[in-house]
Structures are given as C-alpha cells and as structure tokens.
Amino acid sequence: MNRVLTLADVGVTYGRGATAFAALQGINLDIASGEMTLLLGPSGSGKTSLLQVMGCLLRASCGSVQLFGQALARDVGAEAMAALRLAHIGFVFQHYNLFPTLKAWENVAVALDIKQVPRAQQREQALALLARLGLADRAGHYPSELSGGQKQRVAIARALAGAPRILLADEPTAALDGKTGQGVAAALHELAHREGVAVVVVSHDPRVEPFGDRVLHLEDGRLVDDSRPSRSSA
C-alpha cells in the first residue's frame, strides 16, 4: 500500500510565551491509501489538531509533513496550503457544513467548480457522486429538507468531488443516531477499500470502531498506541 502522508516528529504548539500550549508532540506516523484509520483519544488529546495538520489546514510547529513524498515547506503560505487541500484532500465535518442555500447536487457542484471541473460536466458528476452514496433521489433537496444521515452523505459526496486521495473526517457520526451513524461509517470504509482512498476518521463512537482497519490512540498530544484489530476484513 502507498504511503500518502508521512508525519515525522511533528509537534503543534498553540499560543506563545507563558500561554504556549503543546497540543501535539513527537508524532511519527504514516497514512496509507486503501484503508480506514481511526483516531481515538480523550477530549483535548489533540485529535482535531492532528487531523488539521494532516489536512494542510494547520502548519506543524515543528517536525516535517510529507504529502505523497513531498515535504511541505516550513514557510508554506495560506494560498499554497489551500491549493494542496484542493488537489488532494476531502473533508467531512461533524456538523456537515453544507451550504444551506444550495440544493444537495449544487453543494457537490460547487466543490467541483472550485476544482475547475468544466461547468457543463458539474451537474452530471455531482449526481453521480450522490448516487454513489445512495442519494440519487435527494439531489434536488435543500439541506434543511434532509435527515442528518442524508446530510452527512451529501457532505461525503461533496468531499469526494474531484476524487481526492485523502479523506479526513472529524467525528462524522457524532450527530447521528445508531443505525445512521453505522451507515456513514460503512460508507467511509467502503471508500477506502473500493476506491483506494486514504481515510482517517476521528471518532469517539463505538459504532465506528468495527470499521477501522487501523486504530491510533492519542493521549495528551502523544501517540500512545497504533494497532490493527484482526477482526477487520478487506
């Protein structure tokens, strides 16, 4: 399996001087394509911070981050980070973050538009992505007309616009009830195994755990465990 993301001795410190706080320290980590990695840990342990570093949203304070073997420059600018996100990374958020004024397919189409997919193909591609997540019949609905699970699947479809190689999700099932959460977790698992996407999911949710190929444990900003539960099947 390909390494898509490598973190070497990464640390993140918020603030400076007396109020400086080390949220992450000495993180060494490879993320591979084609599997779903779970990131677990107590509240405040640094899961979101780590996801942001992996997602080129947050600059590491120290250490190095490599994307497809290419090291990120220490002084990489905000626009360059945005360009990296655009090219390689899809995000799924706890609260979906759909555009409320746009229909489901338009939400996906905007992601395609940012990625400069020709306008004439946007609708067709958006509908195909929604269909892949079982939402073909909901494409014309506004987010306010969708259930939580449907919203999150629209968000996943939007994150998949332009076929990113990395999908990062922060608590994607936290706002969903039992079966729905499981459905979303299964969808993410399938993406990793069918499409070869590198999927990283931050979650407290025990329903998600069975779908993880690999489980990382964070505590106080340090990686304390990295295991592959044998029950996971490819």
């Binding site: 360009a83 996100r85 995000f91 958020f93 973050n97 905007v110 940012i114």
Partner: peptide, 8 residues
C-alpha cells in the same frame, strides 16, 4: 468551509 475545501 469553502476555504477549508481549498478554495483560493
């Protein structure tokens, strides 16, 4: 959100 998605 747009910015997180990588919009310039």
């Amino acid at each position: 959100t747009l910015r997180a998605m990588g919009a310039p």
